[in-house]
Amino acid sequence: MTAELFVWWMLALVAIASAVMVIAAKNPVHSVLFLILCFFNAAGMFVLIGAEFLAMILVVVYVGAVAVLFLFVVMMLDINFVRLREGFLNYLPVGALVGIVLLAELVLVGTSWALREPSPVLATVEGLDNTRALGSFLYTEHFVVFQIAGLILLVAIIGAIALTLRQRVAVKRQDIARQVHRRPAETVTLVRVETGKGV
């Protein structure tokens, strides 16, 4: 057994164990931390099969951004752990059914896996590192799909802003341009106060 294969199996085992712990951990914050560990092992496996670009993107996007927001939300929630465990057995049959269906699908996909003929674009970039290969593939052959995905994301961003934006009237905001353009003559008046009297 080569060292690489050994490392691969270690990563795979830790990934599965931490995935199990995501649903088994009592504390939801621990669940999110196990999820992050699982992402890391997946990234390690990507590196071992030579997909270093995907590995880094997985860490940057999922671990560095998405999971941070997960963690953020879960930490802010006030969760009653005891009530969370109640009714575990009631939901077990439904949960088990969903799990079995998913497992069956995975097995079906895994056993009938057939690779498509490599695209002609990929054939021309043989020998390039996978960042360049992925780039030339996405920006030429799948250019339209890529643009549509970008547009969907843009709509999602605008939607999120439109849903959460509230215009409040009674809030004092800092207006930097106005502050900079203020002149002493407009804002400060010198008042000579006579002795023995107020302003």
Binding site: V29, L33, I36, E52, F53, M56, I57, V59, V60, V63, G64, A65, V68, L71, F72, M75, D129, N130, T131
Partner: peptide
């Protein structure tokens, strides 16, 4: 070959130490 992405990934993970400590 992805050195810059690696550094970016490492620096984006830096937030975990702090948020875990705070929690």
């Amino acid at each position: 070959n992805v050195g810059v992405l690696y550094l970016f990934a490492v620096s984006s993970l830096g937030v975990y130490g702090i948020i875990m400590a705070g929690w």
